[in-house]
Structures are given as C-alpha cells and as structure tokens.
Amino acid sequence: MEALIKKLVEAYGPSGDEAPVRSLIEEEIRGAVDRTWTDNLGNLVALREGPEPLLMLSAHMDEIGVVVTHIDEEGFLRLAPVGGVSPHLLVGQRLRFKEGFTGTVYHEKLKSLKELDWSKLYLDIGAVDGASAREKVGIGDAACLDQPFAVCGGRYLGKAMDDRIGCAVLVETARRLSRELPQAVAFVFSVQEEVGLRGATTAAYQLKPGYGLAVDVTRVGDTPKAPLSAVGLGRGPAVKVKDSSVITHPLVRKFMMETAEEKEIPFQLEVLERGGTDAGAIHLSREGVPTGALSIPCRYIHTPSEMVDAGDVRHAVELLTALCLKPWPRQKVLD
C-alpha cells in the first residue's frame, strides 16, 4: 500500500484541477469495481453493484494550493490561496505546476514576519522577465506544494495526506472486497472539498445513497501544547462524533463502533472543534442521508509535511472493509 500512497500524495491536484489524481485512481481501482464514471463536476465514482441501500464512501482528491493572480514585468508571480493555506507556511517552499516545472516562494522586505500576508508573497519560477514567465504560466494557473513522500519510523510523511490517504484507503478497501456484497457500494473520489465540500454535494444528489461515510484526516491533540483533543496518532482510526460540518448520525456511529469492536479493530472517538468533511455535504442531501465519518488522525494538516501513522491507515482499511461486508440496516432509521 506504501507505493500507492506515495503515488497519490505526490500527484498534482489542487481544488478544481484534480484530473491527474483522477486518472491515477481510475487506473488503480478499475479492476476492483463494476464500473467507473466521472460526473459533471469531475468527481470519480467507482461502483460495486449490489442491493439497496447504497453505501456512499467519499474521500476527496483535491489538495490545498495556490492560483496565479498576476505576473509582473520582472517575471515574479503573485498568488492567492486555494483552500486553507497560510502564507507563512509557504515561505521558502517549492511549488509545482501541472506541467511539472517548479518555483520557490519568498516575500518582499518586511519589518517583521507578522506583516506577512498574500500581498507581500511572490513565486519565483526562474523567469528572466515577464514575457518569459508568461510563456510558461497564465493567470489562473494553479500550483501545489512540491514535497516527496517519506517513511518516517512507523509513520508516513507527505503533502496532500489530506486527503489522498483517504483515497488510498478507499482504493485498498475496494481491492479487498469479495465478489458478493450485501449492499451496493459507491467509492466516490470527490473534487473541491477544500473550497466548501462542493464535489460531495453534487455526488450525493446524483447517487441518492441510503447511507454516507466520509473518509478524511482529522486533527490531533498529541503534539507539544496542542489544542485540547483526545485524538492521537497510533491509537487507531477515529469514528467521528462531531465537527463543524456534521453531527454524525447516532445509528451510523453505533454501527461503526460495534463493527470495530466485533473485529477487534482499535478506534478512537473524535470531536473536532474546527473543520469539516464531505460528510457535511452528504448528510444534508435531499431529505437527509444518515452519514458518518472515519478519520485518519494526522499531524501538521495543511503543511507540506502531513504525518499519519501506518497502523492507523491499516486499521482504517480493515474497518472500512468490514463495514462494506456487513449488511447495513434496511428499515427506516427513525420513526
């Protein structure tokens, strides 16, 4: 699975420009499902057919990045964020465009780093002047962080673990599923999560699932002076209770916890104070969809080096596999 994770996190795919990630995943998952298609917004759906209720699993393909807003006569590029990017984290970082060329980020002269904002930041792609810069780049072109995957003890490091690790968990789960499933499963690789859960909104409307389950990363409280959170690396994937976008449906949460206990898979319970996932969009689709989320604990989210635990990833695959193989309740959820 390491090779798959490496390929996925190193791929280029800021929100709205996910095509390279989509082709990669389509190739990896094609043999494990009945059919795949790409919808109007660019979500990739890989379907395992089966009886109702349809279980929609969602991991987002997009990553945070930047977009070029201006090219000056000296050949320097000005940037705007795509998703939640801090300008402070970009200083000295390399950024990569879809075509593969890179540049480095620095800032104008500042009295103090506190003054740093997007207007003071620029990208240098090595162009000698504006004209040669414009030969390579246009206004609106996006770039992602450029950082190789690394194995670091029992942990994985890389950019875009948020949420390519979720994509890897979905692909690996699809490969492990036996021929017959108790219900249909849609593996959705969504676009534009980082800019407002946009892909999952339309994917859920289109699929009309009986249940939804997002697989994404979550913040942890196990680093020095971290915000108060009971979630840590290496204690198993987290069953989400609440974040800013969703309160997990109590029956879905119970179903997830019971399944983990039956299979003796370690898990944690997660209450995330800030942040959301595709679950937020799925559960509000049409008349409402009972939805939960399985989270991979992750340190340093939205930095070039997001860190997850290999054991947590393995256990997430085991739990998700068990959840696909177990029949979900068919009756009305509430009366």
């Binding site: 409280g221 108060l228 959170s229 009971a230 209770v241 609440k242 209450v271 104070e273």
Partner: peptide, 15 residues
C-alpha cells in the same frame, strides 16, 4: 456542549 477529553482527576473538557 460535548465532551472532548477526559482529564486526570476525572475532570471533563468540552466544546
């Protein structure tokens, strides 16, 4: 509110 963490001593943190 909702419990986020069980602290030593049995105190609860919440959000």
């Amino acid at each position: 509110a909702m419990v986020t963490k069980l602290e030593p001593g049995g105190f609860l943190r919440f959000t």
